[in-house]
Design a protein around this nucleic acid. Structure first.
Lengths: 243, 243
DNA sequence: CGATCTGTTGAAGTGAGTCAATAGTGGTGG
DNA sequence: CCACCACTATTGACTCACTTCAACAGATCG
């Protein structure tokens, strides 16, 4: 995944529309389709750009389109009646929205910055699943991965301290956004402190305090509020596991 | 699901072994297979009885068999290095173990009481997935459901109070174990207070205190420590959602 | 350059945790 | 049949990690 895709720098116009040249072709669920079938996919899909904060869907909306993230990042959230919010996850380029087969959206999906989606009507999605059974195999694999990630997050939410949660989160974000495997480990944080808090089951002040603690311990440096250098990933890993 | 299956009363010998007469045929993933294919399934699968506390697999074990729960209940848990435990979920009759396609088990699966599993070697499972693509469709559907449940649990772990967590849990257990839709709502709790606590991100003392609170509020009665009558399910629902 | 949003830090409060004592419950064998 | 033991659940008193409330500091932008 490129920094360009993450931060939604304009995609080259030359590859626009063509599924064969799609920037997330390798990561997307559409990778399951043989090249000859891409024409079908291409005919069924449309692009849409979301501005910062704009919602692709809201909790309770009927699911009439599924989507693949081409660039940018979305936050997936749920609300309790009194307004408490929980962020279930973040959708990065290559991630698929609509995996859960619900008829009503279980989550609100909002763009953190500018983002681009590749959309397909749900009806057409179901038709393609029917016509190309290899899609279900791909969707299953993806759902299984999401399930593993969800359970990892449950462990964090249920049994980890604030420091452990934030350390875990930084390593997770570093894995999902890193483009330079060598050199100092870097994490790009496209979300606010409130978003992180709602993802980790903490308050924004607590997240901020933990950042300061980790900074004080020499484990990280905040280049900007949304970019972190991880100096000692192994030690941070120990923090994350409570060692 | 019958009380017999939940509590693992002996299954009738007459239907033993035959997939066509399997007690969880309607719930299991094998429902995707047409009756003529059941012979293949039957040849590949074996039964195994677990005694109370016995493990089907431990975290880190290689996944060399997948399993379908025929009777009894299993707890699926993970450990942090210092011994803190989190229970990710409970597997009831009809549930499938091995959905996540990992090569190493991410969880320990232990029987709460006596339990019976229908086992299949992983290799054979992969062969069947290849030979019968409709299985992947079924597995995908199941994984999608599990994902929805996992995200619901994340909301609970991340943003709900102790009372809300326990109320949510009681309603969930009532749904999964109830056999009498009419009359007073009943929940069977085959796990200990410690198990509930490790599932909800609480301590066993807190779970116990919340039970007393709900009892005091007239919402529930504890018939035994592991059987609850829910007198006012709608009010309990409000408690669960923090209303 | 002021307005607004986001992030940081401090001081005080609280929900759940910890430690500890007691009370049920179920199984075993004398 | 009941006395005993081991295990599980309940309840109380005290503590603490995280929250809440509040003030302030940076960043971003029209």
């Amino acid at each position: 995944m490129s920094t360009a895709a993450l931060q939604h720098e304009a995609l080259p116009a030359s590859c626009a529309r063509a599924c064969s040249g799609c920037v997330v072709r390798e990561q997307g669920i559409c990778q399951a389709l043989e090249t000859p079938h891409l024409a079908t996919l291409q005919g069924a899909s449309r692009w849409r750009t979301l501005t910062a904060g704009e919602a692709f869907c809201r909790e309770g909306d009927p699911v009439d389109r599924v989507a693949s993230v081409k660039s940018g990042v979305l936050r997936l959230s749920r609300l309790l009646p009194d307004g408490r919010r929980h962020i279930t996850g973040f959708a990065f380029p290559g991630d698929f929205i609509g995996l859960t087969l619900e008829t009503l959206h279980g989550h609100t999906a909002e763009a953190l910055g500018e983002a681009m989606l590749c959309l397909m009507p749900r009806r057409q999605f179901e038709t393609m699943r029917h016509d190309f059974p290899e899609l279900d195999s791909q969707l299953y694999t993806r759902a299984a991965q999401e399930l593993v990630a969800a359970r990892e997050q449950m462990l964090s939410l249920g049994r980890k301290s604030a420091v452990e949660k934030v350390a875990t989160f930084l390593l997770e974000m570093s894995e999902r956004t890193q483009q330079m495997p060598l050199g100092p480990c870097r994490a790009f944080l496209p979300m606010t402190r409130t978003d992180m808090a709602d993802y980790l089951g903490l308050r924004l002040e607590t997240v901020s305090r933990v950042f300061s603690t980790l900074r004080g311990a020499g484990l990280i440096t905040l280049v900007t509020a949304s970019e972190v250098l991880i100096h000692l990933p192994e030690v941070l890993r120990d923090y994350a596991d409570g060692v």
